[in-house]
Design a binder for these strands. Sequence first.
DNA 1: ATCGGTACCGCAAACGTTATCGATACCGGA
DNA 2: TCCGGTATCGATAACGTTTGCGGTACCGAT
Lengths: 334, 334
Amino acid sequence: MTKKLLLKDVARLAGVSEMTASRALRGAPDVSAKTKAKIEEIARTHGYVPNRIAGSLSSQSVNLVAVVVPSLNSFVFPEVLSGISAVLKESPLKPVVGISGYDLEEEESVIREMLSWRPSGLIVAGLEHTEATRRMLQQADCPVVEVMDVDGDPVRHCVGISHLQAGRDMAAQILERGYRRIGFIGTKMPQDFRARKRFDGFTDELAVQGVTLADLEHYSGESAIQTGRLLTAQMLARSPDLDCLYYSSDVMSVGGLMHCLAAGLSVPGDIALAGFNNLQILQGLPQQLATTDACRREIGERAAGIILQSRQTGGAEGLILDQLGPAISLGETL
Amino acid sequence: MTKKLLLKDVARLAGVSEMTASRALRGAPDVSAKTKAKIEEIARTHGYVPNRIAGSLSSQSVNLVAVVVPSLNSFVFPEVLSGISAVLKESPLKPVVGISGYDLEEEESVIREMLSWRPSGLIVAGLEHTEATRRMLQQADCPVVEVMDVDGDPVRHCVGISHLQAGRDMAAQILERGYRRIGFIGTKMPQDFRARKRFDGFTDELAVQGVTLADLEHYSGESAIQTGRLLTAQMLARSPDLDCLYYSSDVMSVGGLMHCLAAGLSVPGDIALAGFNNLQILQGLPQQLATTDACRREIGERAAGIILQSRQTGGAEGLILDQLGPAISLGETL
DNA sequence: ATCGGTACCGCAAACGTTATCGATACCGGA
DNA sequence: TCCGGTATCGATAACGTTTGCGGTACCGAT
């Protein structure tokens, strides 16, 4: 751990001015190939790492895109992130992730922190925010994209699916196939607005067709296969006449399938199952579970695309609202 | 999107100097309660977001901890991250994640990028790096912790488990239970050094006891249940006399279990199964799969703890090598 | 020999905040 | 009334880099 190495040191060692060294290392023009090679050589051998704090302050530009998501454990947001990363890879921008923990106050503080670094763009999951957060998003002098959900009032750009509609569609499918004694198992995390919207859309559509939910169970904490299995067991124990279960997440429906397997219930003969997200863990299970694809990766890709586009147009690209059409896959459990 | 609001504007509006405004907003001393309240009020209503780039440059301190992991899809690193976040939550530090994609060159560039922001600490998964990366880590003027693995030559601090030993231990357990026709299914990602070490330890221990691997399969790409299922099917088709399978990941062993379920094979009667990581998805499956706990969360917690400790001691804490003892859980499949 | 043009390079001034130190006002005690 | 001390505040100089502009050297053409 030697003395801190500054641009001025590299310049001195190369016998040039700081400016020339700076240009050389950034690949800027106006440096002869020979001088550039020499400077790069010196920087490399001495392990010079430029101070981007100073650089960004000076150039008034930060090549980072802030991405704020509720969690990384839930299997769903990592894939959004891959989409973002893949698209940004072709640009100088890099994603930086912040976790809000399904908590709007925490989200506010995370976003404030992110914006204080003056990123080139901000991608945030969800349309629900505190008032202060909305103000920050409006005033931010970088493109802002709210993702995952389109049911609400976006601050600026928005890419996502309608969870209300996803719930309705699944209800319609379930009813069309003749199921009538329907149970719902979903998160009660008060701030998982999207799960809530699917639930609302689901029950709405049931109501339209004169059906009411036969049983309902809420759980708190992160979704887990184990939780899905236990809650399914409980619900079927107290409501043995159910013919279909809709879960707020695939992780839970997998648990449901596991219970049915263990209990010797035939699916969908004895009980039909459906989840949401189309997670990768559905592949390879004993049965292909019914689900709705949440277009996670594509949402990430498009959001990143909007950030890039906005960089080019200089923010004059108008409001973009990109509603994707999620596809239900019935699998073998409906 | 109004004009950019600077500290100078807040100060002017409050009728104080920039310094006083700065102090007030940072909670520094030497500001009267009344002035502070006024400044905070103005900052809040006008939506002032401090520019931490300028702040960090001036104060020569950045409250960020860089965390570099190979992937976020693999179920394993998000949990390390939770551990880190949980511990850092009690401090002003915040984690920032970088993804290296199991690629040492990419890792080098990600770490360079991270260090160029002059973070207060760096946590990186794995002990294998390019030469340039090692130099950077050595020269970094912040605490550096290499995590997950202890089989190698750490640059500075290190927290992890011995994957070599984990492989040996599992082999010992398997042999002790009488299995002799053993197959291995693992990733061939050339850079997943830890999976490789488990494989080496595993075969070493087999060799010590005079047993050689009966069959072996490598796959590329991320682990998936589906992949585990397919490869298990293939391997059992060509080597029907196997009595035990060891996988480089739980995700794969779950796929194995699914195949056995579908094929009507009894586990462990017909074939025993064991994986690695002790992922949450193991909970709630038809059978409790054998696995080794990788201490993911604890590794994250301890790594973050070292960063905090080093902040206090000012880097005079000496080298820390923290080897955790991973526990095998036999489950019901061995 | 002179000139316009280009390639290369350096000087000085930012960028927005905080550290440091000094200044002022005010208070209680002598 | 004067003085030392504390509480509160402000002016100035960093922090390490890049932007903007100006300068020099050199080339070919006249």
